[in-house]
């Protein structure tokens, strides 16, 4: 029961954090190149976005749930189980970020979900 609760916290806060960070990064736009100075400038601008801070806070919650899970469960169980966030993430990307989730993407997401069920059964 405790493991299921912490897995739910991990999936929901981690995915919500990703969605917030994506929204912030889409506002910032892509860097012109990948030089360290350019990356540092992009990250500094990202930290001025409220969505970024919301994402960081949610990721911190997910991180502590992850650490707690790792203390009593193997990493090869926790990490694949957290792939449930693929389904939650696709729904969030469509509703919150207005991304076009095509049929092949949905198919891939459901294959991943089935794979996760197999991983848990194993």
């Amino acid at each position: 029961m405790q493991t299921a609760l912490f897995l739910a916290i991990l999936v929901l806060t981690g995915t919500a954090g990703d969605l917030c960070i994506t929204r912030a990064m889409k506002w910032i736009g892509s860097p012109a190149d990948l030089r360290p100075v350019t990356i540092a400038n992009v990250l500094a601008r990202a930290l001025t976005q409220q969505w970024m801070w919301a994402g960081i806070l949610l990721h911190a919650l997910a991180f502590f749930a992850f650490l707690a899970l790792l203390s009593w469960t193997n990493v090869s169980v926790v990490v694949p189980a957290s792939a449930l966030s693929y389904v939650v993430g696709a729904v969030g990307a469509k509703l919150f970020l207005r991304e076009h989730v095509s049929a092949p993407r949905w198919a891939g997401v459901f294959l991943i979900g089935f794979g996760v069920a197999l991983v848990l059964a194993g």
Partner: peptide, 20 residues
């Protein structure tokens, strides 16, 4: 082996998404 099967299925799904 079942867990390995699940992991392979996840990767197959990911490859499908990667085509989009």
């Amino acid at each position: 082996p079942v867990r390995w099967g699940g992991i392979l299925l996840i990767c197959f799904g990911v490859a499908l998404v990667g085509q989009t």
